[in-house]
Amino acid sequence: MRMRPTLSWTPTENLPPGSTQLQPVADALAAGGVLVLSGAGISTESGIPDYRGEGGSLSRHTPMTYQDFTAGAQARRRYWARSHLGWRTFGRARPNAGHRAVAAFQRHGVLSGVITQNVDGLHQAAGSLDVVELHGSLDRVVCLSCRTLTPRHELARRLEEANPGFEPSAAVINPDGDADLTDEQIGDFRVVPCTHCGGILKPDVVFFGENVPPARVEHCRALVQAAASVLVLGSSLTVMSGLRFVRQAAQAEKPVLIVNRDPTRGDRYAHTRVTLPLGAALTSIADQLNIPMGTGE
């Protein structure tokens, strides 16, 4: 379950310091069987901010919760107006060196799997296959009544038709694809229903306060069990949805390696935490292991 965004972890415990040494990560990848668990930090170099850390969006933005979304039409109007605008920018984001490195590692056969907490689809755009989207993806929409899934671009077209002239500007797009807009900018934005049953449409993502589907959790647990080690990339591990897999790996005495600029909630379980920028760090490791990097899309 993803925690409500008002609940955040503060690294006050006596955790091991970060390192700039990449060799432990390179050694784990050379040995193979590495399961990648990525978070918002891997996408910051693509222009998508993360939730925490310096300048993180939680310092100024409260993501929509499932409870708020389902509670009333006005909350859904605010969400869809902001998300519709955010999708225009969010959908133009492109994979960065970190995503391309993960895809290159997978092509080279050193990864056992990829789990991402992100909803941006950038791992797949970089060429990664069979990515487990722990929190879903913004490029799909689900009806809460009939559970029909439809592509996001179809909803975008319908919202454009229902809201001609909707062209507010937003300086910031958040990790959940939400744009910062005022109530005045939202105005009387029109939300459209499911074309199949007239039900409420929601992005196919796990909102804060909502449960990750149990089958997806069990699939991830099986991936951890099968892995030789777990490599965390750009995640603070603040919420239990990702931390539980790090704990599982540690309990099974599998090495946990973390590349993240700030301390994480999983540092106590880690063999090492590298504090270097992700794109440069992973590119350096790929060069060291003679793994050719792809060019993404």
Rank of each mutant, 00 (worst) to 15 (best):
Gly86Lys: 08
Gln288Tyr: 07
Glu218Asn: 10
Met240Pro: 04
Arg82Gln: 01
Asp262His: 06
Leu37Arg: 02
Asn14Ala: 01
Val142His: 02
Arg82Leu: 01
Pro63Leu: 01
Leu201Glu: 03
Ala97Arg: 04
Thr272Trp: 05
Thr89Phe: 13
Val205Ser: 02
Val141Asp: 00
His99Glu: 10
Thr264Cys: 08
Leu144Met: 08
Asp50Leu: 11
Thr89Gln: 15
Arg152Ser: 06
Thr283Tyr: 13
Asp130Asn: 14
Val230Cys: 11
Phe245Thr: 02
Leu237Val: 03
Phe189Ser: 00
Ser8Thr: 10
Cys143Leu: 05
Arg221Gln: 10
Ala73Met: 07
Ile48Asp: 07
Ile42Met: 04
His61Ala: 12
Gly209Glu: 05
His271Tyr: 12
Ala101Met: 14
Leu111Ser: 08
Leu58Gly: 02
Arg140Asn: 14
Val206Lys: 00
Pro213Trp: 05
Gly234Phe: 10
Phe105Pro: 03
His84Cys: 06
Ala97Glu: 05
Asp183Asn: 06
Asp180Pro: 09
Pro151Asp: 06
Ser284Ile: 10
Val205Phe: 04
Pro213Ala: 05
Glu154Asp: 13
Val36Asn: 03
Pro277Tyr: 13
Gly187Lys: 00
Pro24Leu: 09
Ala93Trp: 07
Thr148Ile: 13
Glu184Trp: 07
Pro255Val: 09
Thr20Ser: 14
Val256Met: 01
Ala26Val: 08
Ala101Ser: 14
Gln67His: 10
Asp120Cys: 15
Ile291Cys: 05
Val131Lys: 05
Ser169Asp: 15
Asn14Trp: 00
Thr195Cys: 11
Gln225Ser: 15
Leu129Pro: 04
Thr70Val: 14
Arg4Pro: 10
Val114Leu: 14
Ala73Glu: 12
Arg82His: 01
Gly41Val: 14
Pro24Ser: 07
Ala179Tyr: 03
Val259Thr: 11
Glu160Val: 11
Gln124Pro: 08
Ala222Tyr: 09
Ile285His: 03
Phe208Thr: 04
Gly165Asp: 01
Arg190Ser: 06
Leu223Asp: 04
Ala125Val: 12
Leu7Val: 15
Pro95Glu: 07
Lys202Leu: 13
Gly41Lys: 02
Ala215Asn: 09
Gly56Gln: 02
Ile291Lys: 04
Asn96Tyr: 06
Ile200Glu: 01
Ala227Pro: 05
Asp204Glu: 15
Ala252Pro: 09
Lys202Phe: 11
Arg52Phe: 02
Leu223Trp: 02
Ser112Asp: 13
Pro292Thr: 10
Gly127Arg: 02
Asp287Tyr: 14
Pro203His: 06
Pro16Gly: 01
Lys202His: 11
Glu154Val: 15
Val191Met: 05
Asp68Arg: 09
Leu155Tyr: 04
Pro203Ile: 11
Arg273Leu: 00
Pro151Gln: 04
Phe166Tyr: 09
Thr195Ile: 13
Leu243Pro: 02
Pro151Trp: 06
Gly98Tyr: 04
Gly294Ile: 08
Ala222Trp: 08
Arg247Thr: 13
Pro193Arg: 13
Pro168Tyr: 03
Ser46Gly: 12
Leu233Gly: 08
Arg216Ala: 15
Gly165Ser: 09
Thr295Met: 13
Ala28Glu: 03
Pro263Asp: 00
Ser112Ile: 15
Ser145Leu: 15
Phe105Val: 08
Asn174Val: 11
Leu85Cys: 10
Asn14Glu: 01
